[in-house]
Amino acid sequence: MTPSDPAPASARPGIGRLLVSCPDQPGIVAAVTAFLFERGANITHSDQYSSDPVGGGRFFLRMAFSLDGLADRLDALAAEFDARVGQRYAMEARFTDAARPKRISIFVSRYDHCLLDLLWRWQRGTLGVEVASVIANHDDLRPEVERFGVPFHHIPVTRETKPAAEAEQLRLLTGDAGTTGAGPGIDFVVLARYMQILSADLLDRLGRHGIPAINIHHSFLPAFAGAKPYDQAKRRGVKLIGATAHFVTADLDEGPIIEQDVVRVTHEATPADLTRWGADIERAVLSRAVRWQAEDRILLNGATTVVF
């Protein structure tokens, strides 16, 4: 091999990430670091958190490491880790390759501000994802999306057609409307002001494929859940309005919260003012949540999240 030849994948260093969640107990960090060291890995970053370090809470870990030939070794590494460390500590553990961007599908209706912000950030390479598709229940935003070169799928949804529409959505996301499997490799779904409720059945099927969904809600949850939160905020005379990015569950607007932000308002603000100012917060909050999920920074802790 000449100096100009690329090194084979088995010889190239790669950056991996390890996410761990397990009951807290002594020895976890020592076991994890020893396992990586013994396999030639160099740990480059580590974050950890215990929900109750004294009373036996739950332990969370996010670790980044460099390892030669990572891309070819990842599956074997994960299996060996489970056998030698994971089972001993009752771990939920996941290895990922930082070089592979997460593939996402964006769901949208007619509001374009969150969608276009995500597409702009993706095009500039600051979001850490690959936008595989946009799925919409209205056709209005097709020209905007196609200008980015992203496949656009229009799937109308009515009360009568919702089961068939969700079956088609599932087929596009997984390649299979009825069984589990890798499908086309969508890692997660982003609801960018998608004004439809995902059914419990669709969420269950997505969960079986390992595909979480992230939603942006235009209020500082748990305040003003449901429809028209800016109108609710105006009626209550609040002095702060906000936005919340959260995981989607069958309970409307009650999924684990990932990120929130607020802006100060006054009594003079109209609902239109609140909507306009809130749109800026929605864009920022959703993009942070998407980037953190893409960077494997989010771990579930019951009904809440740990975000490293």
Rank of each mutant, 00 (worst) to 15 (best):
L70T: 03
L74K: 14
A78F: 02
D68H: 11
F60M: 09
E92T: 13
E38P: 00
L61W: 05
S51K: 04
M91S: 08
F95L: 13
E80C: 08
R39W: 01
G69T: 10
S50E: 07
S66M: 11
G69M: 08
A64C: 12
D68K: 12
V85K: 03
Q48T: 08
F59G: 02
M91I: 13
G56V: 07
M91F: 09
G57D: 09
L67S: 04
D72K: 11
S50T: 08
R94S: 11
Q87L: 07
L77S: 11
P53V: 06
R84L: 14
R100M: 09
D72A: 13
D75A: 15
L77K: 08
Y49P: 01
R73F: 03
P101H: 07
V85I: 15
A64S: 15
A64P: 00
E80K: 05
D97S: 07
E92K: 02
M63T: 06
G55S: 14
L77F: 12
G40N: 03
S66C: 12
P101C: 04
G56L: 11
R94D: 10
N42C: 03
I43A: 03
R88T: 14
L36R: 01
D82F: 06
V85H: 03
D75H: 13
A79E: 15
A83Q: 12
S50Y: 05
G56N: 13
A83L: 11
Q48N: 06
P53K: 06
A90Q: 15
P101I: 00
A98T: 10
V85Q: 07
R84C: 10
D75N: 14
R88I: 08
R94Y: 10
N42A: 06
G57T: 10
R58S: 11
F60V: 09
F65E: 03
R100D: 06
G55L: 09
A79R: 15
Q48F: 04
F65A: 04
E38I: 00
N42S: 11
A71Y: 05
D72N: 13
Y49N: 03
G40F: 04
L77C: 12
A71P: 04
A34D: 11
E38V: 00
D75K: 11
A71I: 11
L74I: 15
R84W: 02
A83F: 04
Y89D: 05
D68T: 12
D97T: 01
A93F: 07
A41D: 02
R94N: 08
T33P: 01
S66R: 14
L70F: 10
A71E: 14
F65P: 01
P101L: 07
A98H: 09
V85N: 05
M63L: 15
R58N: 13
D97K: 06
G56M: 10
